[in-house]
Protein backbone atom coordinates (compact mmCIF):
# COMPACT_ATOMS: atom_id res chain seq x y z
CA UNK A 1 0.00 0.00 0.00
CA UNK A 2 1.51 3.32 -0.97
CA UNK A 3 1.19 6.24 1.43
CA UNK A 4 -1.29 8.03 -0.83
CA UNK A 5 -3.45 4.92 -1.05
CA UNK A 6 -4.07 4.59 2.67
CA UNK A 7 -7.52 5.41 4.02
CA UNK A 8 -6.92 4.92 7.71
CA UNK A 9 -3.65 4.71 9.53
CA UNK A 10 -2.93 4.59 13.24
CA UNK A 11 0.56 5.08 14.63
CA UNK A 12 1.27 3.85 18.17
CA UNK A 13 -2.26 4.85 19.06
CA UNK A 14 -2.68 4.74 22.84
CA UNK A 15 -5.50 5.75 25.12
CA UNK A 16 -5.87 5.47 28.84
CA UNK A 17 -8.74 6.35 31.11
CA UNK A 18 -7.67 7.61 34.54
CA UNK A 19 -4.32 5.87 34.30
CA UNK A 20 -5.78 2.59 33.06
CA UNK A 21 -4.43 1.83 29.58
CA UNK A 22 -7.25 0.60 27.34
CA UNK A 23 -5.46 0.72 24.02
CA UNK A 24 -1.71 0.54 23.59
CA UNK A 25 0.58 1.16 20.63
CA UNK A 26 -1.95 0.22 17.99
CA UNK A 27 -0.51 0.64 14.51
CA UNK A 28 -2.83 -0.36 11.69
CA UNK A 29 -3.47 0.60 8.08
CA UNK A 30 -6.49 0.08 5.84
CA UNK A 31 -6.75 0.69 2.13
CA UNK A 32 -9.68 1.71 -0.08
CA UNK A 33 -12.40 -0.87 -0.67
CA UNK A 34 -11.24 -3.04 2.19
CA UNK A 35 -13.33 -4.43 4.99
CA UNK A 36 -11.33 -4.61 8.20
CA UNK A 37 -12.77 -6.57 11.08
CA UNK A 38 -11.78 -6.01 14.69
CA UNK A 39 -12.08 -9.02 16.95
CA UNK A 40 -11.42 -9.31 20.62
CA UNK A 41 -13.02 -10.08 23.95
CA UNK A 42 -15.32 -7.49 25.49
CA UNK A 43 -13.59 -4.54 27.08
CA UNK A 44 -10.48 -5.05 25.01
CA UNK A 45 -10.52 -1.57 23.52
CA UNK A 46 -12.41 -2.09 20.25
CA UNK A 47 -14.95 0.63 20.95
CA UNK A 48 -12.25 2.99 22.13
CA UNK A 49 -10.34 2.42 18.90
CA UNK A 50 -13.47 3.12 16.87
CA UNK A 51 -14.10 6.36 18.73
CA UNK A 52 -10.51 7.47 18.21
CA UNK A 53 -10.81 6.79 14.48
CA UNK A 54 -14.11 8.65 14.32
CA UNK A 55 -12.58 11.72 15.96
CA UNK A 56 -14.77 11.43 19.04
CA UNK A 57 -11.94 10.84 21.47
CA UNK A 58 -8.51 12.36 21.97
CA UNK A 59 -5.58 9.92 21.95
CA UNK A 60 -3.34 9.83 25.04
CA UNK A 61 -0.39 9.15 22.76
CA UNK A 62 0.16 8.35 19.09
CA UNK A 63 -2.16 9.30 16.29
CA UNK A 64 -5.00 8.15 14.08
CA UNK A 65 -5.11 9.51 10.53
CA UNK A 66 -7.71 9.46 7.80
CA UNK A 67 -6.54 10.22 4.27
CA UNK A 68 -3.35 11.57 5.77
CA UNK A 69 -5.11 14.03 8.13
CA UNK A 70 -5.08 13.63 11.88
CA UNK A 71 -8.39 12.58 13.46
CA UNK A 72 -7.73 14.81 16.47
CA UNK A 73 -8.68 17.55 16.38
CA UNK A 74 -11.16 16.34 13.73
CA UNK A 75 -10.16 17.49 10.24
CA UNK A 76 -12.54 18.74 7.54
CA UNK A 77 -12.16 15.29 5.97
CA UNK A 78 -14.36 13.83 8.70
CA UNK A 79 -17.48 14.44 6.61
CA UNK A 80 -16.34 11.46 4.53
CA UNK A 81 -16.79 9.16 7.55
CA UNK A 82 -20.06 7.67 8.73
CA UNK A 83 -20.17 5.76 11.97
CA UNK A 84 -22.60 3.69 13.93
CA UNK A 85 -21.22 3.38 17.42
CA UNK A 86 -22.33 1.84 20.65
CA UNK A 87 -24.92 3.84 22.55
CA UNK A 88 -25.80 6.18 19.68
CA UNK A 89 -29.37 7.24 20.15
CA UNK A 90 -31.24 10.24 18.77
CA UNK A 91 -33.85 11.97 20.98
CA UNK A 92 -36.85 9.65 21.27
CA UNK A 93 -39.22 11.97 19.41
CA UNK A 94 -37.00 12.26 16.31
CA UNK A 95 -38.53 10.96 13.11
CA UNK A 96 -36.63 8.58 10.84
CA UNK A 97 -36.87 11.21 8.09
CA UNK A 98 -35.16 13.74 10.35
CA UNK A 99 -32.30 11.35 11.11
CA UNK A 100 -31.76 11.00 7.37
CA UNK A 101 -32.09 14.77 6.83
CA UNK A 102 -29.44 15.44 9.42
CA UNK A 103 -27.11 13.06 7.62
CA UNK A 104 -27.86 14.67 4.26
CA UNK A 105 -26.89 18.05 5.69
CA UNK A 106 -23.44 16.69 6.49
CA UNK A 107 -22.99 14.84 3.22
CA UNK A 108 -23.99 16.27 -0.14
CA UNK A 109 -23.74 12.74 -1.53
CA UNK A 110 -26.60 11.43 0.60
CA UNK A 111 -28.67 8.96 -1.43
CA UNK A 112 -32.32 9.55 -0.49
CA UNK A 113 -33.58 6.86 -2.86
CA UNK A 114 -31.39 4.21 -1.26
CA UNK A 115 -32.29 5.37 2.25
CA UNK A 116 -36.02 5.29 1.57
CA UNK A 117 -35.99 1.91 -0.13
CA UNK A 118 -33.84 0.30 2.57
CA UNK A 119 -36.24 1.61 5.23
CA UNK A 120 -39.33 0.54 3.36
CA UNK A 121 -37.99 -2.97 2.81
CA UNK A 122 -37.81 -3.28 6.57
CA UNK A 123 -41.26 -1.84 7.26
CA UNK A 124 -39.82 1.36 8.66
CA UNK A 125 -41.83 4.44 7.77
CA UNK A 126 -39.73 7.57 7.42
CA UNK A 127 -42.45 9.30 9.46
CA UNK A 128 -41.96 6.95 12.42
CA UNK A 129 -40.55 8.33 15.60
CA UNK A 130 -37.42 6.82 17.12
CA UNK A 131 -39.22 5.59 20.25
CA UNK A 132 -41.72 3.62 18.17
CA UNK A 133 -39.04 1.50 16.50
CA UNK A 134 -38.02 -1.96 17.65
CA UNK A 135 -34.42 -2.61 18.67
CA UNK A 136 -33.60 -4.12 15.28
CA UNK A 137 -35.33 -1.29 13.42
CA UNK A 138 -33.37 1.29 15.40
CA UNK A 139 -30.11 -0.37 14.52
CA UNK A 140 -31.14 -0.71 10.88
CA UNK A 141 -32.16 2.96 10.69
CA UNK A 142 -28.74 4.09 11.88
CA UNK A 143 -27.05 1.70 9.46
CA UNK A 144 -29.17 2.95 6.58
CA UNK A 145 -28.25 6.54 7.40
CA UNK A 146 -24.58 5.54 7.27
CA UNK A 147 -24.88 3.40 4.13
CA UNK A 148 -26.82 6.05 2.22
CA UNK A 149 -24.55 8.88 3.31
CA UNK A 150 -22.12 8.34 0.47
CA UNK A 151 -19.27 8.12 2.98
CA UNK A 152 -15.90 6.75 1.93
CA UNK A 153 -15.33 5.14 5.31
CA UNK A 154 -17.83 3.34 7.47
CA UNK A 155 -16.97 2.76 11.12
CA UNK A 156 -19.38 0.25 12.59
CA UNK A 157 -19.28 -1.00 16.16
CA UNK A 158 -21.16 -4.28 16.55
CA UNK A 159 -23.44 -3.40 13.63
CA UNK A 160 -25.27 -6.72 13.76
CA UNK A 161 -26.53 -6.15 17.30
CA UNK A 162 -30.27 -6.72 17.34
CA UNK A 163 -30.45 -7.72 13.66
CA UNK A 164 -31.84 -11.07 12.54
CA UNK A 165 -29.76 -13.37 10.33
CA UNK A 166 -31.35 -12.26 7.06
CA UNK A 167 -30.80 -8.58 7.85
CA UNK A 168 -27.22 -9.24 8.88
CA UNK A 169 -26.58 -10.94 5.55
CA UNK A 170 -28.20 -8.03 3.76
CA UNK A 171 -25.99 -5.59 5.62
CA UNK A 172 -22.84 -7.52 4.73
CA UNK A 173 -23.95 -7.73 1.11
CA UNK A 174 -24.36 -3.95 1.05
CA UNK A 175 -20.95 -3.39 2.64
CA UNK A 176 -19.33 -5.62 0.02
CA UNK A 177 -21.24 -3.96 -2.80
CA UNK A 178 -20.13 -0.49 -1.68
CA UNK A 179 -16.56 -1.74 -1.29
CA UNK A 180 -16.43 -3.29 -4.76
CA UNK A 181 -18.38 -0.61 -6.61
CA UNK A 182 -17.27 2.59 -4.91
CA UNK A 183 -14.15 1.61 -3.02
CA UNK A 184 -15.82 2.27 0.33
CA UNK A 185 -13.72 1.11 3.27
CA UNK A 186 -15.38 -0.43 6.30
CA UNK A 187 -14.00 -0.94 9.78
CA UNK A 188 -16.25 -3.32 11.65
CA UNK A 189 -15.99 -4.50 15.23
CA UNK A 190 -17.87 -7.67 15.92
CA UNK A 191 -17.94 -10.49 18.39
CA UNK A 192 -19.79 -12.72 15.91
CA UNK A 193 -16.79 -14.50 14.44
CA UNK A 194 -18.77 -16.40 11.82
CA UNK A 195 -19.98 -13.05 10.45
CA UNK A 196 -16.47 -11.66 10.33
CA UNK A 197 -15.37 -14.77 8.46
CA UNK A 198 -18.03 -14.03 5.88
CA UNK A 199 -17.12 -10.43 5.17
CA UNK A 200 -13.64 -9.47 6.30
CA UNK A 201 -10.72 -8.85 4.00
CA UNK A 202 -8.40 -8.11 6.90
CA UNK A 203 -8.70 -9.35 10.44
CA UNK A 204 -7.32 -7.68 13.55
CA UNK A 205 -7.34 -9.51 16.87
CA UNK A 206 -6.95 -7.25 19.89
CA UNK A 207 -5.83 -8.74 23.18
CA UNK A 208 -5.39 -6.56 26.26
CA UNK A 209 -5.52 -3.39 24.20
CA UNK A 210 -2.77 -4.52 21.84
CA UNK A 211 -2.77 -5.83 18.30
CA UNK A 212 -2.14 -9.54 18.54
CA UNK A 213 -2.76 -10.22 14.85
CA UNK A 214 -3.30 -8.13 11.74
CA UNK A 215 -3.51 -10.10 8.54
CA UNK A 216 -5.50 -10.54 5.36
CA UNK A 217 -8.03 -13.30 6.03
CA UNK A 218 -7.27 -15.13 2.77
CA UNK A 219 -3.62 -15.27 3.76
CA UNK A 220 -4.57 -16.79 7.11
CA UNK A 221 -6.68 -19.37 5.29
CA UNK A 222 -3.64 -20.19 3.16
CA UNK A 223 -1.12 -20.40 5.97
CA UNK A 224 -2.82 -21.58 9.16
CA UNK A 225 -3.29 -25.23 10.01
CA UNK A 226 -3.96 -27.40 13.00
CA UNK A 227 -1.30 -30.08 12.98
CA UNK A 228 -0.77 -33.20 14.99
CA UNK A 229 2.84 -33.97 15.82
CA UNK A 230 4.65 -36.57 17.88
CA UNK A 231 5.53 -35.31 21.37
CA UNK A 232 9.23 -35.60 20.61
CA UNK A 233 8.94 -33.48 17.44
CA UNK A 234 11.86 -31.12 16.89
CA UNK A 235 10.48 -27.74 17.95
CA UNK A 236 13.30 -25.80 16.34
CA UNK A 237 12.41 -27.18 12.90
CA UNK A 238 8.72 -26.48 13.49
CA UNK A 239 9.33 -22.91 14.61
CA UNK A 240 11.70 -22.25 11.71
CA UNK A 241 8.87 -23.08 9.28
CA UNK A 242 5.93 -21.74 11.22
CA UNK A 243 4.79 -19.69 14.17
CA UNK A 244 3.19 -21.82 16.81
CA UNK A 245 0.06 -19.97 17.85
CA UNK A 246 -1.19 -22.43 20.41
CA UNK A 247 -0.57 -26.01 21.36
CA UNK A 248 -1.86 -28.68 23.66
CA UNK A 249 -0.70 -32.15 24.58
CA UNK A 250 -2.70 -35.33 24.36
CA UNK A 251 -1.39 -38.65 25.72
CA UNK A 252 1.06 -39.25 22.92
CA UNK A 253 0.78 -36.35 20.48
CA UNK A 254 0.98 -32.62 20.34
CA UNK A 255 -1.85 -30.72 18.67
CA UNK A 256 -0.81 -27.25 17.56
CA UNK A 257 -2.34 -24.41 15.62
CA UNK A 258 0.46 -23.05 13.49
CA UNK A 259 0.92 -20.41 10.85
CA UNK A 260 3.48 -21.15 8.18
CA UNK A 261 5.81 -18.24 7.54
CA UNK A 262 4.85 -18.22 3.86
CA UNK A 263 2.53 -19.97 1.43
CA UNK A 264 5.50 -21.77 -0.15
CA UNK A 265 6.50 -23.27 3.20
CA UNK A 266 3.08 -24.94 3.56
CA UNK A 267 4.26 -27.46 0.99
CA UNK A 268 6.83 -28.76 3.44
CA UNK A 269 6.10 -31.56 5.81
CA UNK A 270 6.81 -30.99 9.49
CA UNK A 271 9.01 -33.50 11.35
CA UNK A 272 6.92 -36.58 12.09
CA UNK A 273 3.74 -34.83 10.97
CA UNK A 274 0.76 -37.08 11.64
CA UNK A 275 -2.03 -34.96 10.21
CA UNK A 276 -3.01 -31.42 9.32
CA UNK A 277 -6.27 -29.67 8.71
CA UNK A 278 -7.38 -26.15 7.99
CA UNK A 279 -9.06 -24.26 10.80
CA UNK A 280 -11.99 -21.90 10.98
CA UNK A 281 -11.50 -18.32 12.13
CA UNK A 282 -13.19 -19.28 15.37
CA UNK A 283 -10.53 -21.90 16.10
CA UNK A 284 -7.84 -19.44 15.11
CA UNK A 285 -9.30 -16.77 17.35
CA UNK A 286 -9.29 -19.16 20.29
CA UNK A 287 -5.72 -20.15 19.50
CA UNK A 288 -4.62 -16.52 19.54
CA UNK A 289 -6.39 -15.74 22.78
CA UNK A 290 -5.18 -18.87 24.59
CA UNK A 291 -1.68 -19.38 25.97
CA UNK A 292 0.69 -21.71 24.25
CA UNK A 293 2.84 -24.50 25.62
CA UNK A 294 5.78 -24.90 23.29
CA UNK A 295 6.26 -21.33 22.25
CA UNK A 296 9.61 -19.77 23.01
CA UNK A 297 9.43 -16.45 24.93
CA UNK A 298 10.93 -14.41 22.07
CA UNK A 299 8.43 -16.00 19.70
CA UNK A 300 5.61 -14.79 21.91
CA UNK A 301 6.96 -11.30 21.74
CA UNK A 302 7.20 -11.51 17.98
CA UNK A 303 3.60 -12.64 17.74
CA UNK A 304 2.41 -9.83 19.92
CA UNK A 305 4.00 -7.24 17.71
CA UNK A 306 3.20 -8.95 14.45
CA UNK A 307 2.07 -6.78 11.62
CA UNK A 308 1.54 -8.24 8.24
CA UNK A 309 2.29 -5.02 6.41
Amino acid sequence: MTESNIVMKTIDLTRDFGGKVVLEDVSLTVGPGEILALLGPNGVGKSTLMKLISGLLMPSRGEARLWGESCWPPSPEMYRVACVLDGMSPPSGTRVREIMSLKSCVSHRFDWKLATSLCEQHQISTASRWRALSKGQKRWTLLVAALASGADLLVLDEPADGLDVATRRELYGLLREQANDRGVTSIVASHIIADVERIADDVVILVDGRVRLHSPLEQLRDEVFEVELPLEADNSVVTSLAEVISSRKTDDTLIAVIRFRSLQLTEQELPGEISRRRVSLEDLYLAYTQPSQIQAPEERHELASERSR
Binding site: R278, V279, S280, L281, D283
Partner: peptide
Protein backbone atom coordinates in the same frame (compact mmCIF):
# COMPACT_ATOMS: atom_id res chain seq x y z
CA UNK B 1 -18.00 -22.09 2.38
CA UNK B 2 -16.68 -19.19 4.40
CA UNK B 3 -16.08 -21.28 7.50
CA UNK B 4 -14.09 -24.26 6.24
CA UNK B 5 -10.77 -22.47 6.44
CA UNK B 6 -10.23 -23.04 2.70
CA UNK B 7 -9.13 -19.83 0.98
CA UNK B 8 -12.05 -18.44 -1.03
CA UNK B 9 -9.96 -17.94 -4.16
CA UNK B 10 -9.09 -21.65 -4.09
Amino acid sequence: NHHSGDPLYR
